[in-house]
């Protein structure tokens, strides 16, 4: 059992501004610098050790726009800056992408409640792929162990840890359903979260103010909040990142499942679907009549969780 297992590898904290420098201390330093009239050396409150290059990059990062308002050049510039900052601050060689959605693609997901055995390989793969906080054990996916005849996870056990599958139980996974009519998007006061043209609901971490309205608005518990700086051992960080996906988050921002945007936009399956040993997870293009997901919708008994709310999720459950 790894309940008591401690992370032994060197710990890395996240954040564009580093762990020593918060927005507040940055601004405080900025005002002091401005008051002193030393406009040439504007590094905020954390520039004492930082190189001038790092300070310049941070400065430019601080005043960038919302991702949706950026031009293509601005997107490329910020991605480049973030790659350089990761190198300067933590010695990480990351490859960050700002890959755009593919035309005529709308991602959809189907989950086979008959086949799932509750092995939780999906959860482990998701944590690894998306650089999720190892300290507070943030997980985008939650598997529930349910008694037969129930199709509502609230009646199930979401924290089981015993040999699975248990006889006469079945398993149902819950994650962000990427609703077409998503309540979380309308709840956001800063427009930091939106639905991309390929149907993925994403968060611009730099515009999130951490008010957690979206968390309250989501009827599916699909969103996660960073109560502290997420901690991922340096050698476990996934360096293939996407600006709207698994790049490192920091204290005080929301995050969520992005259907592994860094993988799916390259034609790959999300990490959970790829890791599933039972084939319970079907992922594909809803706009392609030949896709697997369309076959499931045509030929299987499907239902959506809390469909009556009108959120129009793109995540179906089906049974054999």
């Amino acid at each position: 059992m790894d309940h008591g297992k401690k992370i032994k590898a060197p710990l890395e904290t996240a954040g564009i501004l580093g762990n020593k420098c918060t927005r507040r201390s940055f601004l405080r330093g900025l005002s002091i610098a401005a008051a002193a009239g030393s406009a040439g050396l504007v590094t905020g409150g954390c520039g004492s050790v930082a190189s001038s290059e790092e300070a310049k990059l941070k400065w430019q990062e601080f005043f960038k726009k919302n991702y949706r308002l950026m031009t293509q050049e601005e997107k490329e510039a910020t991605v480049e800056r973030l790659e350089r900052l990761a190198k300067l601050q933590r010695g990480l060689d990351i490859q960050m992408s700002n890959q755009e959605p593919i035309n005529n693609v709308l991602y959809g997901y189907a989950f086979n409640v008959t086949r799932c055995k509750g092995y939780m390989d999906c959860v482990a793969a998701c944590v690894k792929e998306n650089n999720l906080d190892r300290r507070l054990k943030t997980q985008y996916i939650r598997l529930f162990e349910l008694a037969p005849g129930q199709l509502d996870p609230t009646s199930g056990d979401g924290k089981y840890y015993h040999e699975v599958p248990v006889k006469d139980k079945f398993y149902m996974g819950v994650q962000c359903f990427h609703c077409e009519n998503a309540p979380c998007i309308r709840a956001c006061p800063t427009k930091a979260t939106w639905r991309e043209p390929d149907g993925i609901v994403v968060v611009d971490y730099d515009w999130c103010i951490g008010c957690r309205y979206c968390l309250a608005a989501c009827p599916y518990w699909g969103r996660r909040f960073n109560w502290g700086n997420p901690i991922v051992p340096k050698d476990e960080i996934n360096t293939k990142q996407h600006y709207l996906g698994n790049r490192m988050r920091w204290k005080g921002v929301m995050e969520k499942c992005t259907f592994c945007i860094q993988r799916t936009r390259q034609g790959k399956l999300p990490a959970c679907a790829d890791a599933c040993p039972t084939g319970s997870r079907v992922f594909g293009n809803l706009l392609d009549p030949d896709s697997e997901i369309r076959f499931v919708l045509r030929n299987k008994k499907v239902f959506r969780f809390r469909e009556e709310l009108g959120t129009d999720p793109k995540f179906w459950y089906f049974m054999d």
Binding site: D121, V123, K159, Y160, Y161, E163, V164, W221
Partner: peptide
Amino acid sequence: AFKTKMPETYSLPL
């Protein structure tokens, strides 16, 4: 048939 085994990880209580 698939075998029974311990899950790969676990979730904290809600």
